[in-house]
Design a protein around this nucleic acid. Structure first.
Lengths: 186, 186
DNA sequence: GTCTATAGAAAGATAGAC
DNA sequence: GTCTATCTTTCTATAGAC
């Protein structure tokens, strides 16, 4: 029976998230979706080609059906980072970071996809923030917000602790609002 | 010719850092230190046993010859986190985090070693901070500091950017000093 | 303690039948 | 599009000579 492409991609995402790029095998993936290994090569030329597909799906789910600019900047900002934080707590790890650490010059397509993935995150947050502050400030706060979320994820992964993530969300929102106020006074 | 145990461990660390637990092979390690693969099994019973050795060495290098309590708390705090930040920028990745993501219930010894590694980091920072603030506040600030450093490392790894790390160090120091001042006024 | 040699399993990927 | 079967390489780990 035909298996949907999205099933393969989202299953590959779980494998990459938990086992990393080199730890996830095509055989594991085939078993998980109910196919034989060779059938995967009909849809994807090789293992590396799964990486852009996995990250594109994740970007789509995070930013896809979002109507940019129709609401208050802070409502949008809070909604996005709380969605990201909730996913990171739920899954316990960041698939993007695991792939970032697990790819190298040996896997240039995967490496490029990882860069694009994080750049898209930064650009999206930055575009929300830049409505109420200069672009360079917005970019730094977007970067620091993502860094905080990634770092807090480490404590979820290692100790199962969610507290650091909650503080990361709260502090990032406070930092953004403070910057917005500062700039509006100039 | 005999190869020093420390040479094997520090070489294994570089392999784990860049390729992760499953991506690093015993053959790569043997080649890198100038031994045959089978000779490694004389010193280490298996690949997993390298993980505690790698993380213990790193802990020793970070906290080993440090005389706790002989100087001002903030001098010690700044010195430690700047050492960690400098290493993370220099190597481009955190071996602890790569191993945290790369180990699982299949590798319980490695998983335990990773937990101990991060707990030791948190305990060390927390013990410095708790000289001038309550232990629960100290623990949260220690956690957030480590999370910030880990998150900033992602931007070093992915984009080669060092700015986020510089801000992480600066903001962590400011946060600690602010908490110390607040508590001294109570 | 290091070596050669090898076992045994698992990896990525391909060929060809249906 | 999925399957069986296979190729080739690489993996962890062990046995035994020196």
């Amino acid at each position: 029976m035909k298996v949907l492409r999205e099933t393969i991609v989202s299953t590959a995402r779980e494998l990459f998230r938990s086992k990393g790029y080199s730890g996830a095998s095509m055989n594991d993936l085939a078993d998980a979706v109910g196919l034989k290994k060779s059938s995967l090569y009909v849809r994807f030329p090789n293992k590396e080609a799964l990486v852009p597909a996995v990250l594109d799906l994740t970007l789509q789910e995070t930013f896809g059906q979002r109507d940019l600019g129709s609401r208050q900047w802070d409502v949008e900002f809070i909604e996005v980072i709380e969605l990201i934080a909730a996913t990171l707590i739920d899954r316990g790890r960041c698939v993007g970071l695991h792939l970032a650490y697990g790819t190298s010059d040996d896997t240039p397509i995967a490496k490029d996809a990882v860069r694009a993935f994080f750049q898209a995150h930064r650009d999206h947050l930055s575009s929300i923030l830049s409505r109420v502050m200069p672009v360079d400030v917005a970019r730094d706060i977007a970067t620091d917000t993502l860094a905080r979320l990634e770092g807090a994820t480490a404590f979820v992964a290692i100790f199962g602790e969610k507290d650091a993530m909650k503080r990361a969300v709260r502090l990032s929102i406070e930092e953004a609002q403070k910057a917005a106020e500062t700039e509006s006074l100039v």
